[in-house]
Amino acid sequence: MNGSGEGLLLLQAYDFEHHLDLRPWIVDNWRTSFPMVLVYLLLIFMGQRVMKGRSGYNLRLPLMFWSLSLAIFSILGTVRMWGFMKAVLLWGGLKHSVCFTRFYNDPVVRFWSFLFSASKVIELGDTAFIVLRKQRLLFLHWFHHSTVLIYTWYAYKDKVASSGWFMTMNYGVHAFMYSYYTARAAGLRVPRPCAMLITVLQILQMAGGMTVIGLNWFWMQDRNCHISQDQVFWAFSMYLAYLALFLHFFHQTYFRGRAGKTKGE
């Protein structure tokens, strides 16, 4: 481990992690995320119109492989990013873990943060399965997918200091979520509490994101905390909106829905 300047290495990188640095491309083209989201929303509208007079497709096998691929990717991302963030905590403490941006120069983070940014485009494919199977498409689903894509590319472009925690938490939650989707698509009977647990993890992720941003704001006046007021505002607004939506989803799905079902029995 080298403790000096830009050469700081906190986690041993594999050879393949040294050979991918496409951040300059996203810096120059991050606004491409806006037309991508527009196309995504138009395809949702068109897809629902096309499917209106048709029966939904089964797609169980493609969905299983799709979810399995994203589950494996998320597990690997969790292992690598958590290993790095743990090293940051041990090396520099909590303040350093939420304030410094030098980690973008680390080959491990450079590799997995680019894949993280790219994955937000790939994950838009989740919606295709919902539309083609004629399942109910929630506002939470498409709003979350759209805004996460735009914010992720914006944060990656600006080297937002707290992004290490954002990526680590998201990778971790998605590792559980896509594993659950894989099991469901494979026809396995998954206990209802597992679905509740995933929603709880998503709520905790949003609360965790707001906590990290709160620490950013608290330490923002410190010249060693590399974050701006605009970055704090957009990140906090995003996480607050997600927290409200997931709390509403949790209440509607696991409490109000169950109460209504009990009344009707």
Rank of each mutant, 00 (worst) to 15 (best):
F114A: 09
Q48M: 13
K95D: 09
F73Y: 11
L61N: 05
F16W: 15
A244K: 06
S228M: 03
V121N: 02
K159E: 09
P35K: 08
L9D: 08
H19P: 11
R110N: 13
T127R: 01
M1A: 13
L63D: 05
L89K: 12
S119V: 02
G260V: 00
Q229R: 05
F255Q: 10
L243R: 07
M36I: 14
L137R: 02
F45A: 09
M177T: 03
H174W: 09
L201Y: 04
H174T: 07
G93D: 08
W91C: 10
S119Q: 05
N29P: 09
F218T: 14
W66K: 00
S55I: 13
Y156C: 08
L94G: 00
Q48F: 02
G92E: 07
G5I: 14
S55G: 13
I203W: 04
W234N: 01
S69T: 08
W112V: 05
Y154W: 11
G172C: 12
H174M: 04
G53N: 15
M64F: 15
S117L: 01
I198D: 02
V88R: 08
Q202E: 08
F114M: 10
G260E: 13
Q202D: 05
R23I: 12
P193I: 05
V39T: 09
N58S: 15
K263N: 15
I130M: 04
V190C: 12
F65R: 00
G92Y: 00
F116C: 03
L63W: 08
H141S: 10
V108S: 01
N105Y: 03
C194I: 13
F65I: 10
A87Q: 07
Y151V: 12
R192M: 13
L204F: 10
M167R: 07
Q252M: 14
P193F: 12
F176T: 02
H141E: 00
G257V: 11
I44W: 04
F143K: 04
V98W: 04
C99V: 10
G53A: 09
K95W: 06
R256G: 03
L22I: 12
Q205V: 04
D106L: 01
G83A: 12
P107E: 01
A175C: 09
S55Y: 09
L132V: 10
F34P: 08
L76I: 14
D126E: 05
I26K: 01
E265W: 12
Y104V: 06
P24D: 14
I26L: 13
L124N: 02
V108W: 02
V108L: 03
L38H: 13
A183H: 11
K134M: 07
L42F: 14
R49S: 11
R80N: 11
R192S: 15
I122H: 01
Y156A: 11
L38N: 15
Y40C: 14
A71Q: 03
R184W: 01
R60Y: 07
D158T: 06
V109N: 10
F255C: 02
F84Y: 15
W82G: 03
L63F: 10
Y181G: 00
I203F: 02
L243P: 06
F139V: 14
S179D: 00
H141F: 04
M64T: 03
R258N: 13
Y254D: 00
V160L: 12
T211Q: 07
W234D: 00
W66Q: 00
K134E: 11
